[in-house]
């Protein structure tokens, strides 16, 4: 079974647990090992929390999470109809900066880039679409 599974929910932090539950169910049924599952959960949390926090300022909206555990890769797609935002344009944080100059901003997208094999973004038909892929090992 290698089709897409989708979860649509309100972009609200209180729904983060539902996101994890969905991921664990889909990826668990696909036989994804725990260590890879943790990497995917982290990438998804960083992306989803960003949408939940910033996509719909002062309002409400949905996000759609798609997961496809293929034979060689797991592909994740996150869509929202909020403010157009390309996370790949966020400057890389200086991870060698001393403590006094350390900022946490940008760490989320840095983690996604580090953990995933491919990350892409497009804005199409009013939707932010962030896609990432990770090899199964």
């Amino acid at each position: 079974m290698t089709g897409w599974s989708h979860l649509t929910l309100r972009a609200d932090r209180r729904n983060l647990g539902e996101v994890f539950g969905f991921l664990r169910q889909v990826l668990g049924e696909a036989g994804i090992r725990e260590r890879l599952l943790l990497d995917l959960e982290l990438a998804v949390e960083e992306a989803v929390v960003n949408v939940m926090t910033h996509a719909y300022p002062g309002g409400e909206g949905d996000l759609v999470l798609g997961v496809m555990p293929g034979p060689d890769h797991v592909t994740i797609e996150l869509r929202d109809r909020g403010v157009p935002f390309n996370p790949l344009l966020v400057p890389e944080p200086d991870i060698s900066a001393p403590l006094g100059e350390r900022e946490v901003g940008g760490l989320g997208i840095h983690l996604i880039r580090t953990l995933m094999d491919e990350v892409s973004y497009e804005f199409r038909d009013g939707e932010n679409i962030l896609t990432f892929r990770k090899r199964r090992d």
């Binding site: 943790l38 959960e41 982290l42 960083e46 929390v49 403590l99 350390r102 946490v104 760490l107 989320g108």
Partner: peptide, 20 residues
């Protein structure tokens, strides 16, 4: 602790700065 995200890192970093 089996899992941490950037939110947890932010908490640790803030604690480190304040403690020092």
């Amino acid at each position: 602790l089996s899992y941490i995200s950037s939110s947890g890192l932010r908490v640790l970093l803030a604690g480190l700065k304040q403690a020092r």
